[in-house]
Design a protein around this nucleic acid. Sequence first.
DNA 1: ACTATATTTCAATGGTTTCTGAATAGAGTG
DNA 2: CACTCTATTCAGAAACCATTGAAATATAGT
Lengths: 167, 167
Amino acid sequence: MDAEELNRFIESWGSMGILWGINRSMARIHAYLLVSEEPVDSERISSYLNISRGNTSMCLKELRNWGVIQRVNISGDRRDFYMAEPDTWKMLYRIAIGRKSREFDPALHALRHLLSETDTGKSRKVHERLTQVEEILTTLDHFIDRFLESEEKSKTILSFFRNFAPK
Amino acid sequence: MDAEELNRFIESWGSMGILWGINRSMARIHAYLLVSEEPVDSERISSYLNISRGNTSMCLKELRNWGVIQRVNISGDRRDFYMAEPDTWKMLYRIAIGRKSREFDPALHALRHLLSETDTGKSRKVHERLTQVEEILTTLDHFIDRFLESEEKSKTILSFFRNFAPK
DNA sequence: ACTATATTTCAATGGTTTCTGAATAGAGTG
DNA sequence: CACTCTATTCAGAAACCATTGAAATATAGT
């Protein structure tokens, strides 16, 4: 993978960051770590991607919170080095779990709260509509939980998906 | 459903808009239509939610593009009235389809493009890692397509989800 | 304890998205 | 056709978010 290809990847990963719900800088840094064989230090990241040291530091912290990168120490070197989570599966789980807990769960919670406090008699039609939404989201919620529950199980589910939706 | 509860719902639906990938105003308007028994006109939406007429008009247009609300005419009245898509299922499909085509598909496409142009020999480890990601996303892609393919079929899939992930 | 280097924090900046309100277009009516 | 009411557009204002860079903090080695 030559430098040009590498940059093309970094930039496209950066712009597809929306999909994971992370911003451009974070995604670019993540991409850079993904394509680096060896752990790299923050100075190198910052200068290669033209991101300030400060921002680089904050992004690395965030990415660590997400669990998609790891900090490693190299003996005899005072600097911190970083590498992408080496297990692709684990990485994707972490991203999915993060998104779910930040977006999906609060949404579902709010809806349930609303329904529990709503007088069913007052406007039946509306109440039924919202109940339907709640049911669907609840089912999806359980499903996603199972899907994310363990690595091995998820691999099984994936193979189910393959059979169910071949083409 | 009293006014306070109604507002609470509108606001939480508004802030969960991120989940559907739509902005606050659009989501609030959508929520208001969801909980309205009868079709409402744009003036009423605008004054109830404190959103300018101009913005209301643009949001309604967007929501119609998404297919999650409908414009209806009431004879003898020159105004346009709006109502939420009455079929909850259809509504959720429309949202899911929109998100997939705006976020998921371009991301997957970019990744494939990258892989097709990458020299496999140069950095095997990285190439393998990306290929893994591509495979997983492709499988999910097919699965989601099937899931969204038709109303009836999706209902079947939902019941599968229920059995697979009861609790 | 001191120095040199690495890291983190945060106020200020710059950029992007969203919203407003006035201008414009359009549709129905006498 | 002139009038009235409604809908849409769009330039500028406001709100929001990401990024910088300098200052503060932390740490390792001497």
